[in-house]
Design a protein around this nucleic acid. Sequence first.
DNA 1: AGTACCACCTGACGGC
DNA 2: TGCCGTCAGGTGGTAC
Length: 262
Amino acid sequence: MPELPDVEVFKQYADATALHQTIEGLDVTRDEVLNLPEQELKAHVTGRRFESTRRHGKHLFLRMEPDNWLMLHFGMTGELKYFKKENQAPVHTRVLFHFDNGYHLAYDCQRLLGEVDITDDLENYIKERELGPDALSLDFDSFKARLENRRGMIKSALMNQEIIAGIGNVYSDEILFQARLHPKTKVSDLDKDTLKTLFDAMRDVLQTAIDCQADPDQFPASFLIPHRSKDDDCPQDGGEVTQIKVSGRNAYYCPDCQKMPS
DNA sequence: AGTACCACCTGACGGC
DNA sequence: TGCCGTCAGGTGGTAC
Protein backbone atom coordinates (compact mmCIF):
# COMPACT_ATOMS: atom_id res chain seq x y z
CA MET A 1 0.00 0.00 0.00
CA PRO A 2 2.37 2.66 -1.08
CA GLU A 3 1.08 5.95 0.30
CA LEU A 4 3.01 9.17 0.85
CA PRO A 5 5.50 7.82 3.44
CA ASP A 6 6.23 4.69 1.42
CA VAL A 7 6.80 6.70 -1.75
CA GLU A 8 9.03 9.15 0.14
CA VAL A 9 11.15 6.19 1.24
CA PHE A 10 11.32 5.03 -2.40
CA LYS A 11 12.43 8.53 -3.33
CA GLN A 12 15.21 8.50 -0.76
CA TYR A 13 16.20 5.06 -1.97
CA ALA A 14 16.34 6.21 -5.59
CA ASP A 15 18.36 9.27 -4.55
CA ALA A 16 20.86 7.05 -2.77
CA THR A 17 21.22 4.52 -5.57
CA ALA A 18 20.05 5.38 -9.06
CA LEU A 19 21.16 8.95 -9.82
CA HIS A 20 23.87 10.15 -12.23
CA GLN A 21 24.40 6.88 -14.05
CA THR A 22 23.80 6.52 -17.76
CA ILE A 23 20.83 4.30 -18.54
CA GLU A 24 22.00 1.90 -21.23
CA GLY A 25 18.59 0.40 -21.78
CA LEU A 26 15.51 -1.07 -20.21
CA ASP A 27 13.34 -4.16 -20.45
CA VAL A 28 9.58 -4.16 -20.14
CA THR A 29 8.23 -7.48 -18.89
CA ARG A 30 4.59 -6.43 -18.62
CA ASP A 31 3.46 -3.44 -20.65
CA GLU A 32 0.15 -3.14 -18.78
CA VAL A 33 1.90 -0.75 -16.39
CA LEU A 34 2.97 1.59 -19.18
CA ASN A 35 0.98 4.72 -19.98
CA LEU A 36 2.87 5.10 -23.23
CA PRO A 37 4.16 2.74 -25.90
CA GLU A 38 7.22 0.76 -24.90
CA GLN A 39 9.26 2.16 -27.78
CA GLU A 40 8.50 5.72 -26.72
CA LEU A 41 9.57 4.98 -23.16
CA LYS A 42 12.82 3.49 -24.44
CA ALA A 43 13.43 6.47 -26.72
CA HIS A 44 12.98 8.88 -23.81
CA VAL A 45 15.16 7.03 -21.33
CA THR A 46 17.95 5.28 -23.22
CA GLY A 47 21.25 7.11 -22.99
CA ARG A 48 19.95 9.50 -20.34
CA ARG A 49 20.61 9.74 -16.61
CA PHE A 50 18.34 10.32 -13.64
CA GLU A 51 19.57 13.57 -12.16
CA SER A 52 17.15 14.27 -9.34
CA THR A 53 13.78 13.18 -8.01
CA ARG A 54 10.55 14.72 -6.82
CA ARG A 55 7.57 13.29 -5.04
CA HIS A 56 4.05 14.61 -5.22
CA GLY A 57 1.59 12.66 -3.11
CA LYS A 58 1.94 9.04 -4.16
CA HIS A 59 3.67 9.90 -7.43
CA LEU A 60 7.44 9.71 -7.84
CA PHE A 61 9.19 11.63 -10.61
CA LEU A 62 12.77 11.07 -11.76
CA ARG A 63 14.21 13.94 -13.77
CA MET A 64 16.37 13.45 -16.83
CA GLU A 65 18.20 16.27 -18.59
CA PRO A 66 17.18 18.71 -19.75
CA ASP A 67 13.66 18.60 -18.34
CA ASN A 68 12.00 15.28 -18.88
CA TRP A 69 10.50 13.18 -16.13
CA LEU A 70 9.93 9.48 -15.62
CA MET A 71 6.80 9.11 -13.51
CA LEU A 72 6.31 6.07 -11.29
CA HIS A 73 3.11 5.29 -9.48
CA PHE A 74 3.07 2.19 -7.34
CA GLY A 75 -0.57 1.16 -7.18
CA MET A 76 -1.07 -1.07 -4.19
CA THR A 77 1.94 -3.32 -4.45
CA GLY A 78 4.76 -1.48 -6.18
CA GLU A 79 8.34 -1.02 -5.05
CA LEU A 80 11.86 -0.21 -6.27
CA LYS A 81 14.96 -2.32 -6.03
CA TYR A 82 18.50 -1.48 -7.09
CA PHE A 83 20.82 -4.42 -7.50
CA LYS A 84 23.77 -5.78 -9.43
CA LYS A 85 23.20 -9.41 -10.27
CA GLU A 86 20.32 -10.28 -12.57
CA ASN A 87 19.19 -13.07 -10.27
CA GLN A 88 18.54 -10.48 -7.55
CA ALA A 89 15.63 -9.01 -9.51
CA PRO A 90 12.40 -9.03 -7.53
CA VAL A 91 9.79 -11.59 -8.57
CA HIS A 92 7.29 -9.10 -10.03
CA THR A 93 9.70 -6.89 -11.92
CA ARG A 94 7.72 -5.15 -14.68
CA VAL A 95 10.28 -2.62 -15.91
CA LEU A 96 14.02 -3.03 -15.50
CA PHE A 97 16.48 -0.19 -16.09
CA HIS A 98 20.10 -1.05 -16.86
CA PHE A 99 22.88 1.35 -15.87
CA ASP A 100 26.37 1.65 -17.29
CA ASN A 101 27.94 0.64 -13.98
CA GLY A 102 26.42 -2.83 -14.25
CA TYR A 103 23.62 -2.16 -11.77
CA HIS A 104 19.88 -2.33 -12.44
CA LEU A 105 16.80 -0.61 -11.09
CA ALA A 106 13.64 -2.70 -10.95
CA TYR A 107 10.13 -1.32 -10.90
CA ASP A 108 8.32 -4.19 -9.24
CA CYS A 109 4.52 -4.25 -9.18
CA GLN A 110 2.84 -7.48 -8.25
CA ARG A 111 -0.78 -6.56 -8.94
CA LEU A 112 -0.08 -4.47 -12.04
CA LEU A 113 -2.10 -1.55 -10.72
CA GLY A 114 0.80 0.88 -10.90
CA GLU A 115 1.70 3.20 -13.75
CA VAL A 116 4.84 4.26 -15.57
CA ASP A 117 4.78 7.42 -17.67
CA ILE A 118 6.87 10.21 -19.14
CA THR A 119 6.22 13.93 -19.02
CA ASP A 120 8.17 17.03 -19.95
CA ASP A 121 5.96 19.29 -17.86
CA LEU A 122 5.68 18.13 -14.28
CA GLU A 123 3.48 20.94 -13.04
CA ASN A 124 1.04 20.43 -15.87
CA TYR A 125 1.08 16.66 -15.32
CA ILE A 126 0.01 17.16 -11.71
CA LYS A 127 -2.64 19.60 -12.85
CA GLU A 128 -4.01 17.29 -15.53
CA ARG A 129 -4.22 14.46 -13.01
CA GLU A 130 -6.19 16.82 -10.78
CA LEU A 131 -3.91 16.19 -7.86
CA GLY A 132 -4.24 18.50 -4.89
CA PRO A 133 -1.22 19.84 -3.02
CA ASP A 134 1.11 17.35 -1.40
CA ALA A 135 0.03 16.55 2.17
CA LEU A 136 3.42 17.53 3.60
CA SER A 137 3.71 20.72 1.56
CA LEU A 138 0.52 22.56 2.27
CA ASP A 139 0.08 24.87 5.24
CA PHE A 140 -2.81 25.00 7.65
CA ASP A 141 -4.64 27.84 5.95
CA SER A 142 -4.62 25.99 2.67
CA PHE A 143 -5.64 22.74 4.38
CA LYS A 144 -8.56 24.50 6.02
CA ALA A 145 -9.58 26.24 2.81
CA ARG A 146 -9.60 22.99 0.86
CA LEU A 147 -11.83 21.22 3.38
CA GLU A 148 -14.28 24.04 3.91
CA ASN A 149 -17.62 23.64 2.20
CA ARG A 150 -17.16 19.88 1.86
CA ARG A 151 -20.17 17.88 2.89
CA GLY A 152 -18.77 14.37 3.04
CA MET A 153 -17.05 12.26 5.67
CA ILE A 154 -13.58 13.17 6.86
CA LYS A 155 -11.96 9.85 5.97
CA SER A 156 -13.18 10.16 2.38
CA ALA A 157 -11.91 13.73 2.19
CA LEU A 158 -8.45 12.79 3.47
CA MET A 159 -8.20 10.03 0.87
CA ASN A 160 -9.42 12.24 -1.96
CA GLN A 161 -6.29 12.99 -4.00
CA GLU A 162 -7.91 16.07 -5.53
CA ILE A 163 -8.19 17.68 -2.10
CA ILE A 164 -4.82 16.56 -0.70
CA ALA A 165 -2.37 14.23 -2.42
CA GLY A 166 -0.64 11.38 -0.65
CA ILE A 167 -2.99 9.86 1.93
CA GLY A 168 -4.58 6.46 1.36
CA ASN A 169 -6.71 4.03 3.31
CA VAL A 170 -4.12 2.96 5.88
CA TYR A 171 -2.66 6.34 6.83
CA SER A 172 -6.05 8.04 6.90
CA ASP A 173 -6.99 5.62 9.67
CA GLU A 174 -3.82 6.49 11.58
CA ILE A 175 -4.33 10.24 11.20
CA LEU A 176 -7.91 10.02 12.42
CA PHE A 177 -6.85 7.82 15.33
CA GLN A 178 -4.18 10.30 16.40
CA ALA A 179 -6.65 13.17 16.04
CA ARG A 180 -9.28 11.14 17.95
CA LEU A 181 -11.86 11.61 15.22
CA HIS A 182 -14.42 9.05 14.10
CA PRO A 183 -13.83 8.24 10.40
CA LYS A 184 -17.43 9.09 9.52
CA THR A 185 -17.29 12.54 11.07
CA LYS A 186 -18.76 15.09 8.70
CA VAL A 187 -16.16 17.55 7.48
CA SER A 188 -18.70 20.32 8.05
CA ASP A 189 -18.84 19.39 11.75
CA LEU A 190 -15.17 20.25 12.29
CA ASP A 191 -14.48 23.61 13.90
CA LYS A 192 -11.24 25.49 13.41
CA ASP A 193 -9.53 24.03 16.49
CA THR A 194 -10.43 20.50 15.48
CA LEU A 195 -9.18 21.13 11.96
CA LYS A 196 -5.89 22.31 13.47
CA THR A 197 -5.67 19.15 15.57
CA LEU A 198 -6.31 17.11 12.43
CA PHE A 199 -3.73 19.03 10.41
CA ASP A 200 -1.11 18.57 13.12
CA ALA A 201 -1.93 14.86 13.34
CA MET A 202 -1.60 14.52 9.57
CA ARG A 203 1.85 16.08 9.52
CA ASP A 204 3.01 14.21 12.58
CA VAL A 205 1.82 10.81 11.34
CA LEU A 206 3.32 11.21 7.88
CA GLN A 207 6.66 12.56 9.11
CA THR A 208 6.94 9.96 11.86
CA ALA A 209 6.20 7.19 9.36
CA ILE A 210 8.91 8.52 7.03
CA ASP A 211 11.37 8.66 9.93
CA CYS A 212 10.51 5.00 10.57
CA GLN A 213 11.17 4.14 6.90
CA ALA A 214 7.43 3.46 6.56
CA ASP A 215 8.06 0.20 8.41
CA PRO A 216 5.21 -0.60 10.83
CA ASP A 217 7.62 -2.65 12.95
CA GLN A 218 9.42 0.60 13.77
CA PHE A 219 6.32 2.70 14.46
CA PRO A 220 5.79 4.21 17.92
CA ALA A 221 3.74 2.11 20.33
CA SER A 222 1.02 4.77 20.13
CA PHE A 223 0.31 4.00 16.45
CA LEU A 224 -2.83 2.18 15.38
CA ILE A 225 -1.44 0.70 12.15
CA PRO A 226 0.26 -2.35 13.73
CA HIS A 227 -3.12 -3.06 15.38
CA ARG A 228 -5.11 -2.37 12.27
CA SER A 229 -7.11 -5.58 12.19
CA LYS A 230 -10.48 -6.62 13.47
CA ASP A 231 -10.71 -7.26 17.22
CA ASP A 232 -7.12 -6.23 17.90
CA ASP A 233 -6.47 -4.04 20.95
CA CYS A 234 -6.39 -0.27 20.73
CA PRO A 235 -2.87 0.91 21.68
CA GLN A 236 -4.38 3.82 23.57
CA ASP A 237 -6.90 2.29 25.93
CA GLY A 238 -6.98 -1.42 25.17
CA GLY A 239 -10.43 -1.11 23.59
CA GLU A 240 -11.43 -3.25 20.66
CA VAL A 241 -10.39 -2.11 17.21
CA THR A 242 -13.48 -2.06 15.03
CA GLN A 243 -13.87 -2.37 11.28
CA ILE A 244 -16.49 -0.43 9.36
CA LYS A 245 -17.03 0.54 5.74
CA VAL A 246 -16.52 4.15 4.76
CA SER A 247 -17.18 4.94 1.12
CA GLY A 248 -16.62 1.30 0.33
CA ARG A 249 -13.24 1.11 2.05
CA ASN A 250 -12.35 -0.75 5.21
CA ALA A 251 -11.85 1.68 8.06
CA TYR A 252 -10.37 0.62 11.39
CA TYR A 253 -10.83 2.71 14.49
CA CYS A 254 -11.30 2.59 18.25
CA PRO A 255 -14.91 3.38 19.20
CA ASP A 256 -13.82 4.49 22.67
CA CYS A 257 -11.14 6.93 21.50
CA GLN A 258 -12.83 8.16 18.35
CA LYS A 259 -16.33 9.41 19.05
CA MET A 260 -18.63 11.16 16.64
CA PRO A 261 -19.10 14.78 17.66
CA SER A 262 -22.68 15.19 18.82
C1' DA B 1 -21.03 16.94 -4.55
C1' DG B 2 -20.91 12.73 -2.44
C1' DT B 3 -21.58 7.83 -2.12
C1' DA B 4 -22.06 3.01 -3.42
C1' DC B 5 -20.52 -0.33 -6.22
C1' DC B 6 -17.80 -2.50 -9.76
C1' DA B 7 -13.59 -3.46 -12.25
C1' DC B 8 -8.66 -3.94 -12.90
C1' DC B 9 -4.98 -7.77 -10.95
C1' DT B 10 -2.37 -11.32 -8.15
C1' DG B 11 -1.51 -14.00 -4.25
C1' DA B 12 -2.54 -15.10 0.50
C1' DC B 13 -5.70 -17.11 3.47
C1' DG B 14 -9.61 -19.61 5.46
C1' DG B 15 -13.18 -23.02 4.98
C1' DC B 16 -14.49 -27.40 3.79
C1' DT C 1 -4.08 -32.28 0.28
C1' DG C 2 -6.37 -29.36 -2.67
C1' DC C 3 -9.87 -26.58 -4.60
C1' DC C 4 -12.50 -22.30 -4.24
C1' DG C 5 -14.36 -18.10 -2.68
C1' DT C 6 -12.95 -13.87 -0.58
C1' DC C 7 -10.20 -10.14 0.21
C1' DA C 8 -6.66 -6.51 -0.07
C1' DG C 9 -6.54 -1.46 -1.49
C1' DG C 10 -5.16 2.80 -5.47
C1' DT C 11 -7.72 4.48 -8.99
C1' DG C 12 -11.30 5.32 -12.24
C1' DG C 13 -15.79 4.75 -14.20
C1' DT C 14 -20.80 4.58 -13.65
C1' DA C 15 -25.23 5.07 -11.66
C1' DC C 16 -27.97 7.28 -8.31
